[in-house]
Design a protein around this nucleic acid. Structure first.
Lengths: 156, 156
DNA sequence: GGTTCCTAGACACTAGATGTCCAGAATCAT
DNA sequence: ATGATTCTGGACATCTAGTGTCTAGGAACC
């Protein structure tokens, strides 16, 4: 899993406490991240429909939907792509037997087993939303929303 | 997931149909894999206790335990290492608040959620053994064991 | 003693992830 | 209109991990 996933997750959580666009520079300063690179991840989130972007002064990024409608899987897929964890290279085609027209990504027993595990992973991620995580955080740190909002204003 | 996992999975399956050591060169020829590199993966499997190796003429690798005692997770972990899919970099340490002595790999809500998904993935892989996969294959292709044994002899 | 084979490490190559930079377009304030 | 702010898209450089090769050494067999 790439580093950008962690940045995207925390940035989405922070944005869930805000209701106005926040520019990349501010979001990057929050965790001392490289602004230009974070911007790439934010663009990916925007392309995936998780964030909306607005240009110009007072512009920036904000959540495109309610936090309850954004799963961790949405964010992971937006950053790391939709590929499965295990990529079947169909080495069976190089083995003995007849291979014409056989797609071993479907028929290979290992590919099927790995896909099953992949689906279990995705099911977990799809079942957890940004709203869930936010609730977890607020349970342990009720001051987190106010602190985050204050810090964002301070960094603008 | 690295390429070597697929090689290791199929090689272990093939070895499950054999009862004598098979040298790297033969196993590599089976799927037209680079022998020197496949040997690295086999060494990793041997270090993990999945294979045993014997030197000298008529030496090679064979399964160290019965196929029912080798899970797909064992093989994946032997090749790709024991690290979790999501590596928490604790970017929260760079955010506002007090961080002395806090391990965000444990306390961060995202890290916890990602670990939950990781465990679901591992549970699936741990629940599927080489024996299970072998049974699946033999159900669809009863000739597979004989074919594999013949090919191995042919390639020696 | 020679052959076969594994072991361990050094080394090179490659692809992808990480990070930077810039020209252009959109938006807003004056 | 003009300038300032910000996003967009792409080119580019760098760094790391995966992939692959090679060689010297040791173990086992004949």
């Amino acid at each position: 899993m790439s580093q950008g996933v962690e940045w995207a997750l925390h940035t989405c959580l922070n944005l869930s406490w805000l209701d106005a666009p926040v520019p990349t520079s501010t979001l990057a300063a929050f965790y001392e991240l490289p602004p230009a690179y974070l911007n790439k991840q934010l663009q990916a989130l925007a392309r995936a429909g998780i964030l909306t972007s607005t240009s110009g002064p007072r512009g920036g990024f904000q959540l495109a939907r309610t936090p309850a409608a954004i799963s961790l899987l949405d964010i992971v897929a937006a950053i790391d792509g939709p590929e499965e964890l295990f990529q079947c290279d169909q080495i069976l085609r190089k083995g003995p037997g007849e291979h014409a027209g056989v797609d071993y990504r479907q028929s290979c027993a290992f590919a099927q087993a790995m896909r099953g595990a992949d689906l279990a992973w995705r099911r977990e991620l799809a079942g957890k939303t940004v709203a869930d995580v936010r609730a977890d955080v607020e349970r342990g740190h009720p001051e987190a929303p106010a602190n985050t909002r204050a810090r964002i204003v301070e960094l603008r």
